[in-house]
Amino acid sequence: MEEVNQTTVTEFILDGLTKNPELQLPLLLIFVGVYLVTVVGNMGMIILILFSSQLHTPMYYLLSSLSFIDCCQSTSITPKMLMNFVTDKNVIPYPECMAQFYFFCVFAVAECYMLAVMAYDRYVAISNPLLYNVTMSYQVCLWMIAWVFGMGFLSATAFTFFLIRLLFCKANIIRHYFCDLFPLLELSCSSTFINDVLVWSLGSFNILIPAITILSSYIFIIVSILNIHSTGGRLKAFGTCSSHILAVAIFYGSLAFMYLQPSSVSPLGQSKLSSVFYTIVVPMLNPMIYSLRNKDVKIALKKLIQKVSFHSSKNDFH
């Protein structure tokens, strides 16, 4: 505990995406647009599922939870990042930096597990359609969502607890646009051995378990689809998975691109760009992927718009 009291750094400076003044305004406008689309898209998906009775199924309960995770993850990072484009120095106090890392970690880990739970849901729907409502009951869905967020909070608490025990002396410029773990560990002037062990153990667990669950689910799904005799039945079964496959590919692809390359191969600028993809762009893409590639969502949206239009015209008439 004495080490914590010796910490001299009370605030950090976020380096941001770029120092090129010509790019500041275009990037500001782009990311403001991305953030607005992310919030409207994900909140819109949650509201649509909430008010459309035909979407009150396990698949869409899980999808609304994914939208909530994406919205929160983007909100924990983007608003502070936008400050880099309008200020000379984007200062973030030490407590706020730790809080930002904590919530980013919660929702990043939760997304990994939520994608795994959604893969299992698709496996049950295709492999055991007659038992789907029993296997994926309302109570089971609640337990799964609780597990997803539980793992997120547990992992974030462990990472943050050992992070705040580190000593930060003089260097306080974080070479990133948010308080990520590796840039913070680089600034520490005390031993980061425990943090490194935690990253490799708990970090690997949080990536491998969901990845194995997703891979296993899709192996069984492919086997089940191949056993369907009609071509139409195969296409329909594959169609219910296509949105999730695309979401998984984008999320895990960008994560792998970010973390599975040696630092000598992946320069700082490149790692920033790849992390922009999974922290800011992916949360924007998910609601688009699920709405544009899903007939049920399109029909529910059309009905909701008609219902709102009918009520508004009725009120205008009165």
Results as ranks from 00 to 15, higher is better:
125 A>Y: 03
103 F>K: 07
31 F>N: 06
149 F>T: 00
177 Y>D: 04
303 K>D: 12
100 Q>T: 03
7 T>G: 07
80 K>C: 05
84 N>P: 04
147 W>R: 07
279 T>Q: 13
27 L>M: 15
202 L>M: 11
59 M>D: 12
110 A>Y: 04
208 L>Q: 06
34 V>D: 02
77 I>T: 03
99 A>F: 13
249 A>Y: 00
74 S>I: 11
116 A>Y: 03
166 L>K: 10
112 C>M: 08
31 F>S: 01
152 G>E: 01
243 S>C: 13
230 S>E: 13
277 F>T: 14
101 F>G: 14
251 F>C: 10
251 F>R: 09
313 S>R: 13
101 F>R: 07
104 F>N: 11
59 M>I: 12
137 S>C: 10
274 S>M: 07
218 Y>D: 08
76 S>L: 07
159 F>C: 11
204 S>H: 02
42 N>A: 05
100 Q>N: 09
174 I>C: 02
15 D>P: 06
76 S>H: 01
269 G>A: 08
104 F>S: 12
235 L>R: 14
198 L>A: 03
18 T>K: 08
181 L>W: 00
97 C>F: 01
230 S>W: 10
105 C>N: 14
112 C>G: 12
287 P>D: 05
39 V>I: 15
33 G>E: 06
138 Y>S: 11
279 T>C: 14
220 F>A: 13
213 T>C: 05
89 K>V: 04
171 A>H: 14
161 F>R: 13
243 S>Q: 15
265 V>Y: 03
103 F>Y: 15
252 Y>K: 12
220 F>Q: 14
211 A>F: 06
268 L>I: 08
83 M>A: 08
298 K>S: 04
163 L>A: 07
248 V>Y: 08
271 S>L: 14
257 F>M: 15
250 I>P: 08
119 A>N: 07
81 M>Y: 05
107 F>D: 00
159 F>M: 15
11 E>M: 02
277 F>G: 00
247 A>L: 12
133 N>W: 07
273 L>H: 04
273 L>G: 05
254 S>T: 02
197 V>Y: 07
232 G>P: 08
19 K>Y: 06
81 M>L: 14
27 L>R: 12
209 I>S: 02
317 F>E: 13
71 C>V: 11
76 S>F: 05
63 L>T: 09
180 D>V: 05
129 P>H: 07
84 N>Y: 06
202 L>E: 05
281 V>I: 15
198 L>R: 09
46 I>T: 03
195 N>Q: 13
279 T>I: 02
158 A>C: 06
148 V>C: 06
63 L>P: 12
52 S>L: 13
142 L>P: 00
188 S>R: 04
144 M>C: 09
122 R>K: 14
271 S>Y: 09
14 L>V: 00
265 V>C: 01
10 T>F: 02
90 N>K: 06
48 L>K: 10
73 Q>H: 11
99 A>H: 12
222 I>Q: 10
57 T>R: 14
40 V>G: 00
58 P>V: 04
281 V>N: 05
8 T>L: 05
213 T>K: 02
71 C>M: 09
17 L>K: 10
249 A>K: 01
143 W>Q: 13
116 A>I: 01
308 V>M: 13
292 L>M: 03
137 S>I: 07
115 L>M: 11
53 S>P: 01
258 M>D: 11
63 L>Y: 03
83 M>Q: 12
61 Y>D: 07
121 D>Y: 08
274 S>P: 00
120 Y>E: 02
187 L>N: 09
121 D>W: 04
139 Q>D: 06
